[in-house]
Simulated scan of single mutants.
Amino acid sequence: MTAPAIGKLESRRAEASNRTPDDGPDVGEPRSSVFTFVPSDGSTPTEIVLAETVTSVEPSVPLDVDVGVGTPLLSVTDSALTITAQLTPPQVLRLANRQPLSVRAQLDGSTGPFDCRLNDSRPTADAGTYQLTCRVPIETPGVVGSEGLLAIALDERSDVPALPIEAIAGTRDRGIVYEAATGATRDVTLGITDGAFIEVTSGLSVGEQVLIPSPSLLRNR
């Protein structure tokens, strides 16, 4: 997990049990500490919940010291299988500063789709390659090397004004279109996209027509 904002990692000791040191640890008993991320802006702290398959966890940063956005917080060893999805730069931009509404996955040759918990909602970058990873549930059959699909929903809306991606220059927040009647450019404000169509929140009315392809930098020089 990486820091979602500027803040610090805290560790709270769990309530003491009635066991004595001579009893020794129970196999599979819960960890003796709970980690919490506390944003420096005063917003609600986030308790970091560890999966049952986690076998070891160590802080990657000093406790109670503010760290920057994106700083790795914990080093975790997990015995569960994980799905690694390669992302393109445009997909990374669509995910920026947004929390997924839902994450579903399916392994080839296994059972049907399942909810897949992301290890971190922020893509990791390594040598120019962006990745997201999520844990495969214990009850889902799988082997190392399996392939599959990962579907991430950032938002859901219905009956909204939308245009094909090819009709708009820009796919996040703001864009430009060609008016069909005059060929002039017009600024529009954009909402969510499913990769084929994109929501237009202002700048056009339902029924107005635009040209395809969209305006380009070269044609507007």
Rank of each mutant, 00 (worst) to 15 (best):
R98M: 05
R98L: 14
R98W: 01
Q99R: 13
L101T: 06
S102F: 09
S102A: 15
V103S: 00
R104S: 13
A105K: 11
A105H: 07
Q106R: 15
L107E: 08
D108F: 08
D108S: 14
D108L: 10
D108C: 01
G109W: 13
G109I: 15
S110V: 05
S110E: 06
T111Q: 10
G112H: 06
P113E: 12
P113G: 10
F114K: 09
C116D: 10
R117E: 14
R117S: 15
D120C: 03
S121C: 02
R122L: 08
P123N: 02
T124M: 01
T124I: 02
A125I: 08
A125P: 00
A125H: 01
A125D: 09
D126H: 07
D126A: 13
G128H: 02
G128C: 05
T129A: 08
T129M: 07
T129R: 13
Q131P: 00
L132P: 02
T133R: 15
T133S: 13
C134K: 06
R135Q: 15
R135W: 00
V136P: 04
V136E: 09
P137K: 09
I138M: 06
I138E: 14
E139I: 12
E139C: 00
E139S: 12
P141H: 06
G142I: 10
G142N: 08
V143C: 00
V144Q: 10
V144S: 12
G145H: 04
G145E: 08
S146Q: 14
G148F: 03
L150N: 09
A151M: 11
I152G: 07
A153L: 11
L154Q: 06
L154M: 13
D155Y: 05
D155V: 12
R157L: 13
S158E: 12
D159R: 11
V160R: 12
V160N: 07
V160E: 05
P161Q: 10
P164Y: 04
I165A: 04
E166A: 15
E166V: 14
I168G: 09
G170W: 08
T171G: 11
R172C: 00
R172Y: 10
R172E: 10
R174P: 00
G175P: 05
I176Y: 07
V177Y: 11
E179L: 15
E179Y: 01
A181F: 01
A181I: 09
T182R: 01
T182Q: 01
G183T: 08
G183V: 08
A184S: 13
T185Q: 14
R186Q: 12
R186N: 10
R186S: 03
D187C: 01
V188K: 09
L190N: 08
L190G: 03
L190R: 06
I192G: 13
T193D: 06
T193H: 13
T193V: 05
G195A: 11
I198D: 06
E199P: 03
V200Q: 05
V200D: 02
V200K: 06
V200C: 03
V200A: 04
T201C: 03
S202V: 04
G203C: 12
G203A: 10
S205F: 11
S205G: 15
S205V: 10
E208V: 09
V210N: 03
